[in-house]
Design a protein around this nucleic acid. Structure first.
Lengths: 171, 171
DNA sequence: ATATGTGCAAATCTTTTGCAAATTC
DNA sequence: GAATTTGCAAAAGATTTGCACATAT
């Protein structure tokens, strides 16, 4: 049996992958907090809050969404802090940045890096985001690195199209 | 011999692929003008100019760059027209939009769609963009479509890392 | 002649930055 | 106590929009 599978679908902005993908490969999201501590990054109340939200969020968050949720816990937290924390996590390679094919404007979405890369498929009709992991993707990455000599640090594979459901209800 | 190859590298923003890729697969860029005419799109002087620039540009252009070049031929052409034309070409699926890993800020870059999808690898050190096409990429797309039921319209595969050259000159 | 596209200027949206006050180690 | 981070307010950068005029079919 080939090792590839749709690992999650969700209307609107997709639920993040976790647990077991169809083929048995386990998708996990290592603890951001732990990694930050290991690296001796100074932790503030705001960072703890934001990191926890990103880590636990069941959906892809953009900066504004992250701020909105954070404000429920800390009314005074500022946009700038959100952006600065996102920058910090990006620099440490702990989160991935997505466009989701700009299905909802030019914002960026973030998710805690998983142990295994996966790609995002966005439906132009209904806005559903589907996550997809496969061994073919892993192989392609290796091939690209080997043949180009590139040392790959980040990979982003995004697809836009029409999902199965929307194809059927041909409206 | 496997069918995969680096098809172009260029310092700064990469030269667009065309001609023969290492493995013999020919990469072409079908005429945008012709496609627009086929679809009965109304053509204006501005659109003709912009389309020609995008078609012939040896490098990836962002909106500002496109405007700058267009102004050499028509001083009065406006930013808004550039954005509207980009939108038109995107809606018709005639150009691809790239981020190039945001190596130079949040802008988007555009290129005429090629007969064959290829991916972009951006070096975080020197800013070089390398283009890469491979049969593995084609296979992955097919696999993704087949297994997810998605009807794929656009694919974007971008990679960030350190290029061969920069790895050697370990500065 | 009519529908469509353009330039202009202003608006919008996302993200970044300078700085004084607050916080972390 | 020194170095770093925060909130605030303002700035910057990219893209979009309303509208009167110009252009394409």
């Amino acid at each position: 049996m080939r090792e590839s599978a749709v690992i999650a679908t969700e209307s609107q902005l997709g639920r993040l992958p976790s647990g077991r993908s169809g083929n048995g490969a386990v998708i996990t999201r290592p603890s951001l907090m732990k990694k930050l501590q290991e690296r001796g990054v100074r932790m503030t109340a705001q960072r703890r809050l934001l990191v926890e939200i990103i880590q636990d969020s069941p959906r892809h968050l953009d900066a504004a969404g992250l701020l909105r949720i954070a404000r429920k816990h800390d009314e005074d937290i500022d946009r700038a802090t959100v952006y600065r924390t996102i920058g910090l996590l990006k620099r440490h390679g702990l989160i991935d940045e997505l466009d989701l094919m700009h299905i909802e404007g030019e914002k960026h979405y973030y998710e805690a890096k998983t142990n295994r890369d996966h790609c995002h498929m966005a439906c132009f009709r209904c806005g559903a985001i589907m996550e997809y992991a496969s061994s073919g993707f892993e192989k392609l990455k290796q091939e690209m690195a080997a043949r180009s000599g590139f040392q790959i640090r980040v990979v982003r594979l995004e697809v836009g199209g029409v999902c199965k459901r929307c194809q059927k209800s041909a409206n």
